[in-house]
Design a protein around this nucleic acid. Structure first.
Length: 508
RNA sequence: GCCGCGUUGGUCAAGAGGUUAAGACGCCUCCCUUUCACGGAGGAAUCACGGGUUCGAGUCCCGUACGUGGUACCA
């Protein structure tokens, strides 16, 4: 019988959740769900120096916004906890010691200064970044180079030390990646990575392997930046738990910015968000914008990320989360990194706004209006307005300028658009039109429009020449839906009042 | 430098030896609309380079170039 699929997303709480991170979660989630498996979120908080308070909560807020609920996590619970590596600290040391006992790892006592010195001394033009590896390790202070007595003495005196993996001299380490296929590394070229730090915390390398084993993870998807450290993880699996138990790896392509790797700075630099939600860097107090606050619908955000590096070959581009779960396949994920295109991202949002019923986002729009001090008292009216303008909104925030004039008379008019062709005849027309409007019993579109056309014909003015002025009277500029539609919605009093107000401006 | 990964229009991409090399975003033109959009019809624009293999190569192989990741007691 097949093992139950268990996929994990393992973020470190050191900053905002960026595009690549969200896409990694998404693919993990989709794969787990389509195989009836579990989606686990484990927090990798072993780096004390970069740990940021609040970042963990932020991660879960983002997941919730995206609709990607974990089956197991520190906040959702689960039988394989704890799900924070800091709370698992005691379990790692034994595994590291076991490796030493079997000759696959060793103690190292080098101080940061000594490491620094080695890297400086060994540095040459040909080798700008020397490694702690089989070429240098015998010159360092570790259990391979020290005599048994010296070692014993250091250990019993409680000298600070780390545990490093001992990379084999001549071994080809290979594995089959779900997206890249077979990948090979020469062990001699990989350095002796630290497994257990001097403070007793594991590094990522030890922790992922131990946790993936203990949590029975079957598939591990992560960013391609991890590909280079795969040989370390493979060796750890081989010597600790057996290669046959190792999860299937998939290294996902990177998401690139306009020039090179997408960094959190790029947001400010290029004017688009790189995080799922607003993130305030606690160190610099800098606010980094999120897609949510920028006015994206989570459906669109998920959608655009899913198809950045994957497609099902059919040409379909708009997918709901349910459709993605149905169509996604890890073997159609691209190998190459993709450049993020904000224009296309906006197009996805526009598509989602067009296809979702207004009830889906009316609350968001309402908040925007209310924060601009416009009270929404009539929900039905509000929804009608949103329905009328949604085709011209790309971001949720666009609704404000596309719909304010339904709630507030314009205070400014694009007079340049009317003035050149404005004359007394037109002014008279509007004065009489107001009188006509005043007499309309049933305030509805057909009546308003008919009165306009009839009067225009009587006055011998082309209706078309009067429509633009009328539009500017009602909304202030050259935009918005059909004029009479607007008039019918804002009501008789308001329509007449706006025409009169604008008339005094136009006639100045 | 070394190691890994990659390379189809400006961008996302389809393509698994024989196609007029899909489609989408963006851009341009036209239609619809006497506004702005939506919608519709068109257009410009691509296989990084060099060698092989083959009757035939975007597709396979080898080099080169370029991009990108790693080279931390960071993840």
């Amino acid at each position: 019988m097949d093992k139950k699929i268990r996929v994990r997303f393992a973020p470190s709480p050191t900053g905002g959740l960026h595009l690549g991170g969200v896409r990694t979660v998404l693919y993990n989630y989709l794969f787990a769900k389509q195989n009836g498996g579990d989606f686990i979120v484990r927090i990798e908080d072993t780096d004390q120096t970069r740990f940021v308070p609040g970042a963990e909560k932020y991660i879960f807020d983002c997941l919730e916004w995206c609709g990607l609920q974990p089956d197991e996590s520190p906040v959702h619970g689960g039988e394989f906890g704890p799900y924070r590596q800091s709370e698992r600290k005691p379990m790692y040391r034994d595994y590291a010691e076991q490796l030493i006992k079997n000759g696959f790892a060793y103690y190292a006592f080098d101080t940061p200064e000594e490491l620094e010195k080695m890297r400086n001394d060994e540095k040459t033009a040909v080798n700008p970044s020397p490694q702690y590896d089989l070429k240098t390790r015998m010159r360092m202070k570790n259990s391979l180079s020290l005599s048994p007595d010296e070692l014993q003495q250091l250990l019993s005196s409680g000298a600070l030390h780390v545990i490093r993996i001992k990379m084999p001299v001549d071994e080809t380490i290979s594995f089959n990646d779900l997206v890249h296929g077979e990948v090979n590394f020469e062990s001699a070229l990989v350095d002796d990575k630290v497994l257990l730090k001097a403070d007793g915390m594991p590094t990522y390398h030890l922790a992922v392997v131990v946790d993936d084993f203990l949590m029975k993870i079957t598939h591990a998807f992560r960013g391609e930046e991890w590909l280079s450290s795969a040989p370390v993880h493979i060796l750890l699996w081989k010597h600790l738990f057996g290669l046959e138990n190792m999860p299937q790896w998939a290294h996902l392509p990177l998401i690139l910015g306009p020039s090179g790797k997408l960094s959190k700075r790029d947001g400010a630099k290029y004017g688009f968000p790189v995080f799922a939600m607003n993130w305030t860097d606690p160190k610099t107090n800098e606010l980094l914008e999120g897609f949510k606050e920028k006015g994206f619908l989570p459906e669109a955000f998920i959608n655009l990320l899913a198809v950045l590096g994957w497609n099902d070959g059919s040409g379909k581009e708009i997918y709901s989360l349910a459709e993605l779960t149905e169509h996604f396949s890890i073997d159609r994920v691209h190998k190459a990194g993709a450049k993020f295109d904000f224009e296309k991202a906006k197009w996805f949002n526009h598509e989602w706004i067009k296809r979702e019923p207004v009830s889906h986002f009316s609350l968001l729009v309402k908040e925007i209006f209310e924060s601009a001090l416009i009270r929404i008292s009539d929900e039905a009216y509000f929804n009608k307005v949103l329905e009328l303008v949604k085709d011209r909104c790309t971001l949720i925030s666009d609704f404000y300028e596309q719909a304010v004039y339904f709630f507030k008379a314009p205070a400014k008019w694009d007079t340049d658009a009317v003035k050149p062709k404005w004359n007394a005849a037109k002014s008279d027309f509007f004065i009489e039109y107001c009188a006509k409007l005043n007499g309309i019993e049933q305030w509805e579109l057909a009546a308003i429009e008919a009165a306009f056309k009839v009067l225009a014909t009587e006055k011998n003015i082309k209706p078309g020449e009067l429509q633009l002025p009328m539009r500017i009277m009602l909304v202030g500029g050259k935009f918005g839906p059909a004029v009479f539609e607007i008039a019918s919605l804002i009501g008789k009093e308001e329509t007449i009042s706006r025409i009169n107000k604008a008339l005094t401006i136009f006639n100045q």
